[in-house]
């Protein structure tokens, strides 16, 4: 009886060896990305099981939210709807991806505990599951974005490639944050509460609904040191035909590299124990 499948598990042999094993886990998750996708897709489908509209609810509920907040802020800030609604629509949709990938990161390993404790599936498979699940949700929101951009005529002056670059950089960043919240939440059960509070606070500290009118004083500080502002700016401004701050892309790129280095180092050190945290 011949077989191609091979598993070798070895004891602790120093940090260099642990690093190799962590990279192997990452590679294996890449080879089985289809599994992450199946799990993510299953998650989205089961959330809307039994409802008549199914995942269309993702689109509908978001459309209502965008309309409501769009009208409200247009009145409150005395700005025309043409200016507010697209801004708010893009803001809420992309904020949703950012905050959910990070908040749902807290559950990544906790929900996968039975699979982690009796199979050799790569740990990263479940990180990609969380990220992909929210990309599927974003796919449902694209309808709203396209509708708004066409209706208000932004499609003529938007810079799509730059927005895609912004989205890619954002995903690169929220993925490592998601991994970080996943590891820490498995170990310390207070982390999910902290993450949820921080994300709620950040939603108001970031120009998701409100337009930054001036960049002076405290506002300048808030915008410069708020990583979420740079994420939104890098995606939203090019879509609205505005010139984004080039610094935003630079900051996001540096943050992605530094963040992944730090988080991956944490993963290297905790990888063996993640299954025992659960």
């Amino acid at each position: 009886m011949q077989t191609a499948e091979h598993m070798l598990r070895t004891g602790r042999r120093g940090t260099g060896h642990e690093f190799t094993l962590a990279v192997a886990d990452l590679k294996a998750s890449g080879a089985r990305l289809g599994l992450s996708w199946s799990l993510a897709w299953h998650d989205v489908v089961s959330r809307y099981r039994g409802s008549i509209l199914g995942p269309l609810w993702i689109t509908l509920s978001m459309a209502f939210m965008v309309l409501g907040i769009g009208f409200l802020y247009s009145e409150l800030q005395h700005i025309s709807l043409t200016e507010t609604l697209p801004f708010v629509a893009l803001g809420i949709v992309f904020w949703g991806v950012i905050s959910l990938v990070i908040i749902e990161g807290c559950d990544t390993f906790v929900l996968a505990s039975s699979m982690l404790s009796q199979t050799s599936l790569p740990i990263f498979t479940f990180v990609w599951r969380t990220v992909l699940r929210n990309i599927v949700v974003l796919g449902h929101h694209v309808v709203i974005i396209v509708a708004v951009l066409i209706y208000f005529g932004f499609w003529r002056k938007m810079n799509l490639p730059l927005a895609v670059l912004g989205l890619a950089l954002t995903l690169a960043n929220i993925s490592w944050v998601s991994l970080a919240t996943a590891i820490t939440s498995a170990r310390f059960r207070d982390i999910p509460q902290i993450v949820t509070s921080v994300m709620q606070f950040s939603m108001f500290m970031t120009p998701v609904f409100w337009q930054p009118s001036s960049r002076s004083g405290l506002m300048h500080l808030v915008l410069t040191f708020n990583p979420f502002f740079h994420m939104l700016d890098a995606i939203r401004s090019p879509l609205l035909g505005q010139a984004p701050d080039p610094m935003s892309y630079a900051i996001l790129a540096v943050m992605a590299v530094v963040g992944w280095a730090g988080t991956f180092a944490t993963f290297v050190l905790t990888r063996r124990n993640i299954v025992h945290y659960l």
């Binding site: 091979h6 598993m7 598990r9 004891g11 602790r12 699979m115 199979t119």
Partner: peptide, 30 residues
């Protein structure tokens, strides 16, 4: 099954492993 890593020593398995430790693994009741 590959879930718990050794602290010392080695485990080497040639072949596709099927852990039937828990029948309800990955089963979604809804």
């Amino acid at each position: 099954s590959g879930a718990y890593e050794p602290d010392q020593g080695e485990i080497e398995v040639h072949g596709r492993i099927a852990p039937l430790l828990d029948l309800s693994l990955g089963i979604d009741p809804s």
